[in-house]
Simulated assay, not measured.
Amino acid sequence: MSRPPLILLAHPQRAHSRINAEMAQAAQAAGFNVRDLYALYPDYLIDVPAEQSALAAADLVVWLHPIHWYGMPPLMKLWLDEVFSFGWAYGPGGQALQGKHLWLATTTGGPESSYAPGGYNRHFFDAFLPPYEQTAALAGMQFLPPLVLHGAHRAPADAVQAHVDVWVQRLQTWPDWPELADIDTPLCEVPADARPQE
């Protein structure tokens, strides 16, 4: 039986968030564990053992954050740098996350039409996902198809509610997602001499 998901919320301005905050509240109301990184670490001093312990207790890890300059917000990146450590998350002996699922739930300011060759972001949204996919692969995790709401600033209330409903429904039905059978993430072996000894 799968253990409950771990949801990591990383929104630098949660008080001004329309959608990420509502998604976090809906997940909490449904009984899921949400760790608000900006509330936990306003000084950016991350408790790595506590975060690794939380990860160890989950089979599904969810990153809930808005897209900032085509990637994750700064505290989420620092969290990743420090928590997914060499010898723990990857590299020799780094098997703590192998077999877990990683799911990105995110929002963009730009509309979906801006994420296309003719739009001002010049690429489809999937073009910005390889760092997430490779992070999962390096840690031996399966990267699940992300949940994305484009144009978050201007999304009408009914679209936001529909998105939140899908979000909660997906959390409640994981791991019974039909698309999981088609996901195959390669295992990336990092040799022992890939990094100098410290």
Rank of each mutant, 00 (worst) to 15 (best):
D184F: 00
P66T: 11
P191H: 06
E51R: 05
Y132F: 15
Q25W: 10
A30W: 15
I183G: 11
W177M: 09
V160T: 14
H150I: 02
S17C: 04
A29E: 15
Q197R: 04
L144C: 03
P4I: 01
L97R: 02
A159G: 14
A56G: 15
A57V: 07
Y70A: 13
L80E: 15
L171N: 02
Y38H: 12
W167M: 03
H68D: 12
Q134V: 05
L8E: 02
Q25E: 07
P178Q: 03
I19Y: 07
V34M: 05
P49D: 06
Q98D: 08
L40S: 07
Q169E: 10
P5C: 13
G99Q: 11
S114Y: 06
A159T: 15
R122Q: 14
Q169K: 09
L147Y: 07
E22M: 13
P4N: 09
V166M: 10
P12I: 03
E198T: 11
P191A: 08
R14M: 04
A157L: 12
P5Q: 12
P111A: 05
A139V: 09
G99K: 05
T107F: 00
R14G: 01
I46W: 02
A155G: 10
Q95W: 05
L138A: 07
Y132I: 15
F128P: 07
Y70F: 10
W79V: 00
A89T: 01
T108A: 06
V164P: 01
A58K: 02
C188G: 07
G99R: 03
A194T: 13
L129W: 10
Y70E: 14
A157T: 13
Y90V: 00
R18I: 06
P178W: 10
S53H: 14
H123W: 08
L9V: 04
W177E: 08
N33F: 09
H101V: 07
E51F: 02
P66G: 04
T185K: 01
M72V: 07
Y90N: 01
D47L: 13
D47W: 10
H101N: 06
I67D: 01
A159L: 09
D193H: 08
A26P: 05
A58L: 04
L75C: 08
H153R: 11
A54I: 14
K100Y: 08
Y120R: 11
A116V: 05
Q28M: 14
D176V: 13
R170H: 08
P196Q: 11
Y41R: 09
A136Y: 01
L45H: 07
H11I: 04
W88I: 03
P49T: 04
A30I: 09
E22S: 13
N121Y: 11
P146I: 00
V34F: 11
A21S: 14
L138C: 07
M76S: 03
L147F: 04
F143G: 00
L60G: 02
